[in-house]
Design a protein around this nucleic acid. Sequence first.
DNA 1: ACCTCGACCTGCAAGC
DNA 2: TGCTTGCAGGTCGAGG
Length: 289
Amino acid sequence: MPELPEVETVRRGLAPAMEGAKFKKVEARRGDLRWPLPKDFVQRLQGQKVEGLGRRAKYLTVDLASGDVLLMHLGMSGSFRVGGDDTASYHHARSKLTKHDHVVFHMSNGKLVTFNDPRRFGMMKLVTRAKIDEEPLLRAIGPEPLGNEFDATMLAKACAGKKTSLKAALLDQRVVAGIGNIYACEALHLAHLSPKRQASTIADRKGAPNERAKALVDAIRAVLKDAIAAGGSSLRDHRRADGSLGDFQHNWRVYDREGKPCPARGCKGTVKRFTQNGRSTFWCPACQK
DNA sequence: ACCTCGACCTGCAAGC
DNA sequence: TGCTTGCAGGTCGAGG
């Protein structure tokens, strides 16, 4: 379930298992993810020390002492599992593998980190850190919504002149990083803005932000922060017995709540669903203008 | 250059 | 019970 908050939660869950440790052994059990794993994938990882785990948009970045960066994306159905200390035998560890466990990292600290992805829309790739600014997958990605550079001025400038809908603009990773179908719906609802509204209407003719742009920036920040906080608590308190990461409880306002009462204060509306750019949009026509 | 849509995959729930 | 259909949190790349 990977939009920015989920990926950030995964990053925080993986950090204690990976940072400072080396890849003792890497198993590429199934290399045909979104793109094939490079043939030197295992060789370039094994023996390398992990200096740190980062995130850019919905990508996880693993910085290696070699100067390589392991770039990973969860696609639609990717998740990680952190196994307990691998003091048991290799064969015991193997016996716990399940269907769709495509890549397994045996870390030098005994932790077992397993990537599972039924639909295989996820990906892993090795890039050179010195050339990461040239990486095509990252090059065009817009500002981090929780970073300092993201504000109403930026968002309005990115949306100015756009003929497409506000929701489609939020899903465009070049406009702002890390928002997916759920948090686009959630942020628009919190900001009381219609997903159908033309994106350019959050800016004036010169591209300067109006009140809508400001409300949307605040809403985006709020829903993402809340979701990360929920993920963090889930990581601490409700972590599944098998250590799965990337899957936790949400309390959505409108997403997947078709027919339910609108949660906005004082609104008597009902949550509706319709298809927009091939994807489900959930919203309240009564309070989202 | 912008925008929309198909394609990539598997699993699951709902309907008949 | 079994079959079919539609839908799922992403995003690249083709084509208009």
